[in-house]
Each structure stands twice: as C-alpha cells, then as structure tokens.
C-alpha cells in the first residue's frame, strides 16, 4: 500500500465543533488514524509533521488580516483543501457582522477597542483561496466527515448529497412541521446532511447546512410572509450560521428591504 496520506487540520474563527467531530467519531477515530497520517491537528496532538500535506481540513472563517495571509499559506501547504463547517464554508455566525458596523460591535463588547484587530467582515475560505471541496454544516456531520476521509483515502468523490433536508425528512417519516404545524421551516431550501433532526423534534430547520443546490429561499420566504409570518422573523431565520451564503443572503436582504 502506498504511504498514508498526510492530513492537516486547521482552525480559523470558529467554535471548534467541526474539528471536534473527528474526535467524536469514536467508532472510527482509531481506524482513521490507521489509514491517514494525522500530521497536523493541534486540538488532538502536540507533534507536528512538516507540510506539505495531502489533505487540509479547514475549520473557521476569515476575520483578521493575519488570517487572510495565513489561509494562503495553508493553501500552499495542502494538495487538496476541504472546508469543514458553516464558518469555513459560508462565514459562519460571525458573518452576522457583515450586515452591521463592526466598530459598533467592538465598542459594545470591548472596553479597549484599540486592541481589537479584526476585519469588517467574516468571509468563507473560498472567497480567499481555491477550495477543492466543501463539507457543510453547523456542525458538520461526523458520518459525512468519515465518508470524506474514506473518499480521499480511496480516491473517489465524497458522497455528500446536495438536495434538500425535506428528502431526508420524508425518508425518516417525519411529518412536515411547515405544512402540519404552520412553522416557518428552512428545510425545503437547506441542504441535507444532518439527518433532518430538527423537524423530528417538532421544530423548524434553521439552516445549519446552508442553501441546497437550486435553492429558492425567496419563494419560500414569500410564502411564509403570505401565511402571516413577520418578515423580520424570516430575516433572522435566514441569518443564522449560513446567512452569508448567496441564496440565503439574497432572500434575507429582500425580506428586510420589504420590511422597511
């Protein structure tokens, strides 16, 4: 067998939850360590192997000037670059700043704003460097992460669906919360992958996996609006962890404008 692929795990602005998913894959963690060389993964190991790496997993969004430079270095070090999670893929919850004045944020939270070195925006990795593959989710699904690793090891495309949460929801036999309970749910426009958890707990999907392919959040938003949902509720729903993703952003901006 050829040498084990070298894996690096990087962190930018994030909560650590996505890289934790690797440690949370309890059944597979040691098997993963058998098939890939975990060469750089600060959260899990002190030893660091020098790059370049075959695969880089990047968690977190780009929020500082330093990180703008660092991600370019990361890209140079990694043959195959994968973003893991909503922060790295869509800017994450930090991207809520993109609709507001970040100086306002700083002065609100920090007593000494002069110490804060941050950008006005939180942006996905793909806005800075080329990304080979994006794994969605807030957090990512550990099964999808293991599938990603398996796919990379065996040289195939990761099997990660791009269809809606509704497909998963119906497969698992959950009664639609939007239709049967009148809850404003983002499932029809959100990419599957989580296993359609929220509706099975009688609550709305709030878009952890970001817009599905061919998403039409505008139509869904208009429908909920017509059903009497307050527009700002819908704006907030679209602006959670993937608010900066194009389809959600367009729809939330339109709904916000309509509200004014």
């Amino acid at each position: 067998m050829a040498a084990k692929p070298k894996l690096a795990v990087y962190k930018f602005a994030s909560c650590d939850g996505c890289q934790l998913s690797l440690l949370d894959a309890e059944d597979e963690l040691l098997a993963v360590a058998d098939v890939v060389e975990i060469a750089y993964f600060l959260e899990a190991r002190t030893a660091v192997q020098e790059g370049p790496y075959d695969v880089g997993l990047v968690e977190g969004s780009i929020t500082t000037k330093h990180d703008v430079e660092r991600i370019k270095e990361v890209r140079k070090q990694c043959r195959f670059l994968v973003t893991i999670g909503a922060c790295a893929t869509a800017g994450g919850i930090q991207a809520l700043r993109n609709w507001r004045d970040v100086n306002d944020f700083i002065s609100h939270v920090y007593a000494h704003p002069e110490y804060i070195n941050t950008l006005k925006t939180s942006t996905p990795v793909a806005e800075h460097v080329f990304v080979d593959f994006e794994l969605r989710g807030c957090p990512i699904n550990k099964k999808q992460l293991v599938e990603l690793v398996a796919a990379l090891v065996h040289g195939r495309k990761p099997r990660v669906p791009t269809y809606s949460v509704c497909v998963e929801c119906k497969r698992r036999d959950t009664v639609c919360v939007a239709v049967a309970r009148g809850i404003a749910c983002l499932g029809p426009v959100t990419q599957a992958g989580c296993g359609a958890i929220c509706p099975s707990y009688y609550r709305e999907c709030f878009g952890c996996y970001g817009p599905k392919e061919n998403a039409n959040s505008m139509s869904l938003g208009q429908h909920y609006l017509a059903a009497g949902k307050p527009s700002m509720q819908l704006v907030r729903l679209l602006r959670n962890f993937n608010g900066h993703a194009a389809d959600f952003a367009t729809a939330s901006t339109a709904l916000e404008t309509a509200n004014k």
């Binding site: 809606s164 119906k170 499932g187 029809p188 426009v189 061919n214 039409n216 139509s219």
Partner: peptide, 13 residues
C-alpha cells in the same frame, strides 16, 4: 419554477 423549491416533497409523498 419561480415558486417551486425543487425540494422534492411532492415526489416523496
């Protein structure tokens, strides 16, 4: 198609 979400619910049910 302007209204359709391409979510697949119709086919699932």
């Amino acid at each position: 198609a302007r209204r359709c979400l391409a979510c697949g619910n119709c086919t699932m049910v």
